[in-house]
Design a binder for these strands. Structure first.
Length: 294
DNA sequence: TTGCAGGGGTCAA
DNA sequence: TTGACCCCTGCA
């Protein structure tokens, strides 16, 4: 059947989306935007998203989603995988920049996921001055402690906890996720969301500048984390999360010298315009995988 | 075996 | 503008 221009074949507990362009699970799930998709032995990825567990893989040009229906695809995965966007055209529009050619070739299968903004808030608070394996562990522990248990393929998975569940918990228990000094931020962020002191839905309606400012009212959220939340929730694309990797790759490929955060942001805004979020992701993935500047 | 640096930034002084 | 910061892995 045809769903939003995609030829979708529904079969025994799985769906196949035919001829998907500009998508590779490794690029998309391992480019740093998500902490909860786990690569399996066979190279496929399994994740607990939106209260369900699915397994995603690529067979030729076909995207295979196990444990999902065509109806799920229409109502959820289409949006989650940003399937409405033509990434070939994004890359074409960024192709004026010779520096970006190689990073875009390298991460050709990246799609920016439209993830839950609350999950992004907590995940990227945890990411501050932290390492990826540890971030993943803390997010996992939070889910195991407070999330709902799901089963798939004989294994257990857990949904990401709701703000209320973390807010009602005491801080000592939250600290069991081993996120260190960030645990008090997690707890307070949960309380702010649960009590409506910060409205994540309202952030969607704001202009980018206001959205940044609103998110930064939450403790543990500075400029970089705010931009990650906005970009990886599919809320804003004219943001440029600048962490140590992006800073180094910008200095190495563009500035040929040290540059300040403001210089980098101004440069990216001027050069990439409203596509700067995509440019950032290709550059970040390229820089980290090649350990540029490390 | 023990010790120490360092990591997807942010906060407070 | 500059340190400290939880935690814990990697490496000397």
């Amino acid at each position: 059947m045809n769903i939003a221009g995609y030829d979708v074949v529904e079969g025994k507990g799985e769906i196949i989306i035919k001829g998907v362009q500009d998508f590779h699970p490794v690029h998309t799930f391992e480019c740093g935007q998500s902490f909860r998709w786990i690569r399996q032995q066979d190279g496929s990825h399994t994740g607990a998203v939106d209260g369900r567990v699915v397994n995603v893989s690529l067979a030729g040009e076909d995207m295979v989603v196990k444990n999902a229906s065509a109806e799920d695809f229409k109502s959820f995965w289409l949006g989650y995988f940003d399937m409405g966007r033509d990434y070939a055209s994004v890359k074409k529009n960024l192709g004026f920049d010779p520096v970006l050619i190689e990073p875009m070739k390298f991460g050709w299968g990246i799609r920016l996921l439209r993830q839950d903004i609350w999950e992004m808030l907590i995940s990227f608070i945890i990411s501050a001055n932290n390492m990826i394996p540890r971030i993943m562990k803390s997010v996992d522990r939070l889910s195991e402690m407070y999330g709902r248990r799901l089963e798939y393929g004989g294994k257990f998975f857990y949904t990401f906890p709701a703000a209320e569940e973390l807010a009602e918990s005491d801080i000592e228990r939250v600290a069991e996720c081993r996120a260190g000094f960030r645990c008090k931020y997690i707890h307070e962020a949960a309380r702010m969301v649960a009590e409506g002191r910060v409205d994540l839905c309202a952030v969607r309606e704001m202009d980018t500048r206001s959205a940044r400012k609103e998110l930064q009212r939450v403790p543990g959220v500075g400029p970089k984390v705010a931009d990650c939340i906005l970009l990886y929730s599919g809320t804003k694309y004219d943001v440029f999360p600048t962490d140590v990797w992006v800073k180094r790759v910008m200095e190495e490929l563009y500035f040929k010298r040290e540059a300040s955060m403001k210089e980098i942001l101004d440069f990216a805004t001027d050069r990439f315009g409203n596509l700067m979020g995509f440019a950032q992701q290709y550059l970040f993935y390229y820089a980290r995988e090649h350990r540029i500047g490390a």
